[in-house]
């Protein structure tokens, strides 16, 4: 099956000697939402910039729906829309003009009804004749999204789309992303906000120090790496853990009122049954129990720390 984007052995060394990407291999499927996570300076933006033609790669190949980004740059680029991280917008032009300009730049004939719909979808319609200079930061962000979508791309890159954006716009953005996906658009977003990836991504890729550490279905990732913990509230304060419970990974918390048991939800035997039985046998009286699953954020932090 042809991929939306196919990246092989992609490397980038900047003139300063900084190796921003090291032999990255990544296949992005048509129609999926892929979230690229990674700390600042991990290489996320460099990766996107190479695919979009803004940065030259040092080594490696990239193709967009089968079209090489160098030898078939026209076919590759017209499929892509990019919303960069920084707020780069013209200042004195009107919203309508700048969005129409973007469409022309990508070789598409003017289509006012489409631009109108786009501006309405992004709640920019009543600002269409305003100069961009007069807009708020959030509105400028919307303008950049409208510009990226003006030529009806098949693939959309959102580089930190919700950095410094208020809750309302963030929710709007998520809705837009889902709607675009329903229309068959492949979406790649980079983000710091793990809850964003958790909320909307199908797959998650983690980049650190120019290396792609892993790419995994989000649910699979959480299942594989997700640790669960069982919290046992006690009726009586416990000074120390009884020796009989030495075989479990336990912590005594909250001044001895609570026992926390960490276990792997993937394991065949979670050990919960025997733990409870052992607690009973040791004469410890249980008030309440609860289980929690670790979030994508915990997983991410663990992964990045492991790759250090």
């Amino acid at each position: 099956m042809q991929h939306a984007i196919s990246i092989s052995k992609l490397s980038k060394v900047y003139d300063s000697g900084l190796a921003a990407l090291q032999e990255v291999d990544l296949d992005i499927r048509n129609g999926e939402i892929l979230a690229l996570l990674g700390p600042n300076g991990a290489g996320k933006t460099t990766l996107i910039s190479i695919v979009c033609g803004i940065v030259n790669a040092t080594n490696g190949k990239v193709s967009v729906q089968g079209h090489d980004i160098i030898s078939e740059f026209r076919a590759a680029r017209e499929r892509i829309g990019l919303v960069p991280q920084e707020l780069h917008v013209e200042t004195f032009e009107t919203v309508w003009d700048t969005v129409s300009y973007s469409r022309g730049l990508f070789g598409k004939k003017p289509n006012p009804p489409l631009i109108e719909q786009l501006l309405k979808d992004l709640t920019l319609w009543d600002k269409k004749d305003s100069k961009i200079l007069e807009l708020s930061g959030g509105m400028k962000r919307r303008v950049m999204i409208a510009k990226a979508l003006a030529h009806e791309p098949k693939i959309l890159f959102l580089d930190e789309p919700t950095a410094g954006v208020d809750v309302e716009l963030r929710k709007d953005m998520w809705q837009l992303v889902r709607r675009l996906r329903e229309g068959g658009v492949t979406i790649i977003l980079t983000t710091h906000y793990i809850e964003e990836a958790e909320e909307i991504a199908d797959r998650v890729g983690v980049i650190n120090k120019g290396r792609l550490i892993l790419v995994e279905e989000k649910s699979e990732l959480m299942r594989k790496l997700g640790k669960k913990q069982l919290t046992v509230e006690l009726n009586e304060v416990l000074e120390t853990l009884p020796e009989a419970l030495g075989g479990y990974d336990l912590d005594l918390e909250n001044g001895g009122e609570r026992i926390v048991y960490r276990y792997n939800s993937q394991a065949e035997r979670t050990g919960i049954g025997s733990l409870l039985a052992d607690l009973n046998r040791a004469g410890i009286s249980v008030k309440d129990i609860a289980t929690e699953q670790s979030s994508l954020e915990d997983i991410f932090v663990t992964l990045v720390e492991e790759s250090r």
Binding site: G53, I54, F73, A75, A76, R77, I80, L82, K147
Partner: peptide, 9 residues
């Protein structure tokens, strides 16, 4: 805004 010109076909 040059990014847009560079990323255009």
């Amino acid at each position: 805004t040059i990014y847009e010109v560079l990323s255009a076909p």
